[in-house]
């Protein structure tokens, strides 16, 4: 191995602990972004006047890439989510999405709402197809 320090890190007993906490931090940061973004939709400029949201998103994406790289380098068995928690997350995120969608569409004329919803549905279908293909 060209970099013995990396090898040392890989097999260090604290590495899985640090990686688990890093993962948890990433999830909290993503939930925080979701919350701030929801607030921004509700009250435009309320968050963006104080926090640079694109920079925040860029930071999270960079951390996700780093997380992915580490997870490839450090194969870890992931404990699957238990069923109640999975359903709680699905219901919570689905409910949040529906609320945000309703609030975003509130002032649009009815034909525009239909077009936007159809377009959202089409995008969702497209993503599903791409995801399935991968």
């Amino acid at each position: 191995m060209r970099y013995p320090i990396l090898l040392l890190l890989k097999h260090h007993k604290m590495t899985p602990v640090a990686f688990a906490i890093f993962t948890e931090f990433l999830i909290l940061a993503t939930l925080g972004f979701l919350l701030l973004w929801s607030l921004e939709i509700l009250l435009p400029t309320f968050v963006s006047a104080r926090i640079n949201l694109p920079l925040y998103l860029g930071g999270i994406l960079s951390l996700f890439i780093l997380h992915h790289a580490i997870s490839v380098w450090l194969p870890q068995k992931i404990n699957p989510l238990n069923r109640p928690l999975r359903w709680f997350l699905i219901i919570f995120l689905g409910f949040l999405s529906i609320i945000l969608l309703i609030l975003s569409l509130l002032k649009f004329p009815s034909p525009a709402i239909v077009i936007i919803l159809l377009f959202c549905g089409f995008l969702g279908y497209l993503f599903r197809r791409i995801y399935s293909a991968v």
């Binding site: 007993k13 899985p16 688990a20 068995k77 992931i78 404990n79 699957p80 928690l85």
Partner: peptide
């Protein structure tokens, strides 16, 4: 896993 358990298996000593 749940929120009370780690995302990855952590050795009992850690």
């Amino acid at each position: 896993m749940s929120f009370l358990e780690p995302f990855f298996p952590i050795a009992k000593t850690e």
